[in-house]
Amino acid sequence: MREQTVPGYTCIILLIIGNICGGIISRRAFGGEINAQSAYYILAIMLIFSALMGYYNVKRNTRAHRKWMLRSVVYFSVVISARLIMLAARLIVSNIGTYHSLWRCDEVFFIVKDENTLIQQFPQCSSSTPSDNGLYVPVHASIYEGKLGTAAAVRVVQGMALWVATIIHMALVEAYIRSTESANSQRHGFVLEARDFDSEKTYSPRNSYW
């Protein structure tokens, strides 16, 4: 059991630390869009809560422990699905061609690297210190318009991708838990067995499969 317990506790501790750091970073990540921020915060709460509930039920209720740890793992993988959704979504919004995201002039300057290009595309950003200009300008979201357009497309779809992935993962993990409920009905030793599990029959010396 120690081989499983120590890594489990370590994982929970690192998970909490990582989510706290992620929550801090999300204020600025992908432009700090409020829809992306809210998705990050809710996901972090869901993930930490499910992990702690799994820890709480380790020795109290094995069935509940299994359910909460399954939820924790599935919630943790939301970002993977969100990434795949984002790759498809940014292509869609680029083909639609009417989406924009708000960027500060200093953010645009960081991408284009050239002051003349910045002023040519965004005259509003004209300043003696473009790297410190906090004025916001709309940037066309399109993966066909270089690094800036691609970054704008990613910023547009990031929050949506996180929310969609979260909903999908929540629905699928609950469906899986319900569908496997009868197969993990009772505890026998350190494992969960089916509702109709017969320990005497399974572990009997007469059983040719044992």
Rank of each mutant, 00 (worst) to 15 (best):
R2E: 14
R2I: 15
E3K: 02
V6P: 06
Y9E: 02
I12P: 04
I13Y: 00
I16D: 04
I17Q: 09
I24E: 01
I25V: 14
I25Q: 12
R27W: 15
R28N: 09
R28K: 13
A29R: 04
G32V: 10
A36M: 06
A36P: 00
A39E: 10
Y41Q: 07
Y41D: 03
A44K: 09
I45H: 01
M53W: 03
G54Y: 06
Y56A: 09
N61F: 05
R63M: 03
R63C: 02
H65I: 10
K67Q: 03
L70H: 01
R71T: 02
S81L: 06
I85G: 10
I85E: 12
A88V: 04
L91F: 06
L91I: 01
I92F: 15
N95M: 14
Y99K: 02
H100C: 09
E107V: 08
V108W: 02
I111W: 02
E115F: 05
Q120E: 15
C125L: 04
C125R: 00
C125D: 03
N133C: 04
V139R: 01
E145G: 02
E145Y: 11
A151D: 12
R155L: 13
W163T: 09
A165F: 04
T166D: 07
H169V: 02
F190Y: 12
F197I: 05
K201Y: 11
Y203I: 07
P205Y: 12
